[in-house]
Design a protein around this nucleic acid. Structure first.
Length: 206
DNA sequence: TTCAGGATGTACT
DNA sequence: GTACATCCTGAAC
């Protein structure tokens, strides 16, 4: 299976965040594959970014994973009940990561529906279908990701990213038009002073 | 369609 | 004690 290697993540964090848009996030759960196309990311760079948990190289139990090798999953609990999935970037000891903020479902929808809502796909309201994976907490819940998966290597078989669905033996998507990439300010970091204005969020619209 | 408010636990001061 | 890289529900429009 062709998955992105550590060298993909071992680069400038903003560049990695931009290039992750449109790639496929794959989660192996028991014998099933859950797959979505990544539609929204944000870059966090510890050496200069007050919004980053490891700003100014602050190293605590929670941020330890951010200092790990590029291509490691950093997953933490937020607001007491939700989790956020990040990919560690740049060389080890540089605390940088890309937050995966949202996705568009490709494969395994029924399982994800059960994980998210405890209901079958055909029992969901239109509102629930529309807001299936459009947020970091939703994506983690739907893909069964929690702190148990913190530190997992993205070069393994449990969680990884690939360029194309054919890389994992699924038929390719046919998109009506190549989605256009948007750039903007990051979300939910109003406390971060000058860093609130950094244009480090990337997303596509449907 | 948007809005306010509450749920919830951990890290850090 | 306070803040937090969020989400859901229900009420009003």
């Amino acid at each position: 299976m062709a998955k992105l290697t550590a060298s993909f993540y071992n680069r400038d964090t903003v560049q990695v965040a931009r290039e992750l848009i449109g790639k496929y996030l794959v989660r192996r759960l028991d014998c099933q594959l859950l797959v979505c196309r990544i539609t929204e990311t944000e870059a966090y760079i510890g050496r200069c970014d007050k919004a980053c948990h490891a700003y100014n190289y602050r190293r605590t139990n929670r941020t330890e994973t951010l200092f790990a090798s590029p291509g490691t999953a950093y997953i933490y609990l937020i607001y007491g009940m939700y989790h956020c999935l990040n990919f560690v970037t740049e060389p080890a000891e540089e605390p940088c990561a890309v937050l995966i903020r949202g996705g568009s479902m490709c494969h395994g929808s029924e399982t994800v529906s059960q994980l998210r809502f405890g209901k079958s796909l055909d029992q969901l309201s239109p509102y629930q279908r529309k807001n299936f994976l459009n947020g970091p907490g939703k994506l983690c819940k739907g893909f069964a990701l929690s702190r148990l998966q913190n530190g997992l290597p993205l070069t393994g078989d449990t969680l990884f990213v690939c360029d194309s669905l054919s890389d994992i033996g699924l038929p390719s998507e046919k998109l009506d038009a190549p989605p256009s990439l948007h750039v903007g300010k990051r979300i939910g970091i109003d406390y971060a002073e000058e860093a609130v204005d950094f244009p480090w969020r990337f997303f596509v619209t449907d």
